[in-house]
């Protein structure tokens, strides 16, 4: 049901884009107003969310430690999984953000026979997540050729490497295939596993469908619905140089792609996609396990009602004296 609703929502976005640009002639709305509005929403929303998180203090230093602590000199500490200083924390965060370190740890629980539970390696999610994020990054960087003049070398190089297989005209981009495969996998596992299906919300399927729509329309634009690339670039350059114009000859199908991208960008700050920013602020990962070395200060550390020694001795003085325990007041 949640998946279906999300699919309908994404199809509705596409339909709107078709009606707006293929039937009516609202290309200015979809080609100029919408992208600007989406970018503005993204920037303001993203910054707002980060600032909003940052406004709440970190009262306690609560890293989740995943290796040996730094203690005695002759015991080797695990600097990356249990960092005790800033360099270690940077390393830990880099591993987490760039390599998805924690997902790499994943195990899969299986029951053998009647009474044995085993925990084998479970690397599929890690592979799927890496494939998605990195192929998306490659696709994103390749798209710089539409927004820049001259095109940065990295985008050109990536374009060449990506089309390495030289299949088809224009060449098929490996990253596109990886991206679609990864998205298909991430979607399939949500539907396939009863547990995942049970926990999945509409807001879990919606971005997946959006991304599949974006990648799908992108591939179709490259290989099947041939629109004039020069015109698309002219339009993109107009957007980035704040002189927006809609050149003639841009196919309505291109606006499907663009509208889906704009939707994703605008949706980003309101969604779970904010994990991209949030992971950097996660107190179980971004703090050093140096609790006993350096005092962590809680800005709102409030006084509490305690039971003082004096009160305690008042409660038990006679019994303490009878047992021969020293007391402060005779």
């Amino acid at each position: 049901m949640n998946a279906f609703l999300s699919l309908v929502a994404v199809l509705a976005v596409m339909l709107a884009a078709y009606v707006g640009t293929g039937v009516l002639d609202a290309k200015f709305l979809f080609g100029t107003v919408l992208p600007y509005a989406a970018i503005a929403t993204f920037l303001i929303g993203f910054i707002y969310r980060i600032v909003d998180w940052a406004k709440s203090p970190v009262p306690f230093r609560i890293p989740t430690t995943c290796g040996q602590q730094k203690s005695l000199e002759w015991i080797k500490s695990d600097r990356l999984d249990n960092p005790h200083d800033t360099i270690g924390v940077i390393g830990r965060m880099a591993l987490e953000v760039l390599c998805f370190r924690s997902l790499f740890r994943d195990t899969k629980m299986e029951r053998h026979e009647e009474a044995t539970v085993v925990y084998g390696p479970g690397l599929w999610l890690w592979i799927g997540a890496l494939a998605f994020h990195y192929s998306f990054l490659v696709v994103f960087v390749r798209h710089l050729r539409f927004f820049t003049e001259p095109v940065p070398y990295v985008a050109v190089l990536l374009q060449r490497v990506d089309g390495f297989f030289q299949v088809g005209v224009p060449p098929v981009m490996a990253s596109n295939l990886f991206l679609l495969a990864a998205l298909a996998f991430l979607f399939a596992r949500r539907l396939w596993s009863p547990q995942l299906r049970y926990i999945s919300l509409a807001s879990d399927y919606f971005p997946l469908f959006l991304l599949i729509g974006i990648a799908g329309t992108g591939v179709l634009l490259r290989h099947f619905v041939r629109t004039d690339i020069v015109n698309v670039k002219e339009m993109a350059m107009g957007l980035v140089s704040f002189k927006p114009a809609i050149p003639k000859g841009v196919h309505w199908f291109f606006f499907l792609h663009l509208t889906l991208v704009a939707t994703l960008i605008a949706y980003f700050p309101f969604s779970k996609l904010m994990h991209a920013g949030g992971v950097f602020l996660s107190p179980t990962r971004n703090l050093a396990n140096n609790n006993r070395m350096v005092r962590h200060v809680n800005p709102w550390n409030a006084p509490v009602k305690v039971h003082t020694y004096e009160e305690y001795e008042d409660d038990f003085r006679d019994k303490m004296k009878a047992a021969g325990l020293p007391v402060e007041k005779e």
Binding site: S56, D204, K272, W300
Partner: peptide
């Protein structure tokens, strides 16, 4: 608590329900 603990706020917001944690809890297993 949202205003006092960044941990709480972040943990309320950024879960993507990837399911990596699902079979890690002893009570679930």
């Amino acid at each position: 608590r949202l205003e006092k603990y960044r941990s709480f706020k972040i943990f309320m917001d950024i879960c993507v329900r990837c399911g990596a944690c699902a079979d890690k809890c002893h009570f679930y297993i």
